[in-house]
Simulated assay, not measured.
Amino acid sequence: MQAWQWIGVALAALVTGYGIWCYNRLVFNRHRVAEAWSGIEVQLKRRSSLIPNLVAALREYMAHERGTLEALTEQRSAAQRHEGDTVSERGVAETQLGTALMRVLILAEAYPQLKADGSFLALQRTLSEVEDQIQMSRRYYNGAVRELNILVESVPSNLVARPLRFTTAEYFTLADAREGHAPTLEF
């Protein structure tokens, strides 16, 4: 073989190697986004599973707040109906659930006998931990989405991403930025 043929083979091998490397990075980041979303779903399901216990604990103390407790239960059901939906639709439903949960917990502050209830205090601590985990999971997910989206949209990796149908992912955002703070559940 002549020198120009070796250069052609080397160049083809380099381009192929780079294509494989880009493809593997895209696959890695797509799986990281999926894994991060799974982490969010676990925490959202944990929060959702705690709500019936919260409603049961509060029902005996907050008899005249029945409408607020029912609204929380309805928001939980609505959030569960959105489990298979897009990230943005799920975000709206979960934001509404979080708002209803905070409203109930703020109302619970008006009941001093709750402060002495050990099961309520344990539930309150668990909910606070879950809210913190949701925030951390959301940050991790959005970071993974950012990395994938950069690869899908930037040159030269987009030359591999487009033909192989890699797409950008949605960020998990809040409907209202003020809702990004974990509720203070200190009683």
Score class of each variant (00 low, 15 high):
Ala122Phe: 02
Leu123Asp: 02
Leu123Phe: 05
Gln124Ile: 01
Arg125Asp: 11
Arg125Trp: 03
Thr126Leu: 11
Leu127Ile: 09
Leu127Glu: 01
Ser128Gly: 12
Val130Phe: 01
Glu131Ala: 08
Glu131Gly: 03
Gln133Asp: 15
Ile134Tyr: 07
Ile134Asn: 10
Gln135His: 14
Met136Val: 14
Met136Leu: 13
Ser137Pro: 02
Arg138Met: 07
Arg139Asn: 14
Tyr141Asp: 09
Tyr141Asn: 12
Tyr141Gln: 08
Ala144Gly: 00
Ala144His: 02
Val145Phe: 01
Val145Tyr: 03
Arg146Met: 12
Arg146Gln: 15
Arg146Ala: 10
Leu148His: 09
Asn149Glu: 06
Ile150Gly: 10
Ile150Val: 13
Val152Gln: 03
Glu153His: 11
Val155Phe: 14
Val155Ala: 08
Leu159Thr: 05
Leu159Val: 04
Leu159Met: 13
Val160Gln: 03
Leu164Asp: 00
Leu164Asn: 08
Phe166Arg: 10
Thr167Asp: 14
Thr167His: 15
Thr167Lys: 15
Thr167Gly: 15
Thr168Gln: 10
Thr168Ile: 02
Thr173Gly: 14
Asp176Gln: 12
Asp176Arg: 15
Glu179Tyr: 06
Glu179Cys: 07
Glu179Trp: 08
Gly180Gln: 10
His181Trp: 05
His181Ala: 08
Ala182His: 01
Pro183Lys: 02
Thr184Tyr: 00
Leu185His: 01
